[in-house]
Design a protein around this nucleic acid. Structure first.
Lengths: 65, 65
DNA sequence: ACTCTATGTAATATATAATTTGCATATGTT
DNA sequence: AACATATGCAAATTATATATTACATAGAGT
């Protein structure tokens, strides 16, 4: 699942650690999601989107490879 | 997780069974998602959205109670 | 060189999404 | 009445998302 989380997170100059804490998961989980190797749950996707001030579509919809 | 899946699915006059088959899960999974008692995975959300010709935001973003 | 922070990654454990099976009811049809 | 289809719901099982712990490397600062 490719996505825009890493790109957007870096624009906010948040670290994986900080984002992880805010959305209530571990740093490793964020890392794997950014890498595209994870299939996160909807709740987590929503939490990440809100924390980054984006919508689900912004982060996860039809992201080109 | 409230969402618009049931409303949109009914507009297409698809049954839970048919949608389930198209996205590769069971009828029960679709039922629970529509009921809002499940926290589906992103892949499944995307599959449902594509099958219903909607985006993630249409189905799962800020759905009022 | 050393230390600290950010990140990548791997193994094992735990929580939970999803399956399977079964039974219920409501509705439509013959 | 009998039968089929669509849906709701519950218990037990399986698959997998996430946690935990640990070790690695690269870069910035002192």
């Amino acid at each position: 699942m490719k996505n825009n989380v890493k790109k957007i997170r870096m624009k906010t100059s948040m670290t994986q650690q900080q984002l992880a804490k805010k959305v209530g998961v571990t740093r490793q989980t964020i890392g794997l999601i950014e890498k595209g190797e994870y299939n996160p749950t909807l709740q987590l996707c929503v939490a990440i989107a809100k924390e980054l001030d984006k919508t689900l579509d912004d982060l996860f919809w039809e992201v080109e490879e």
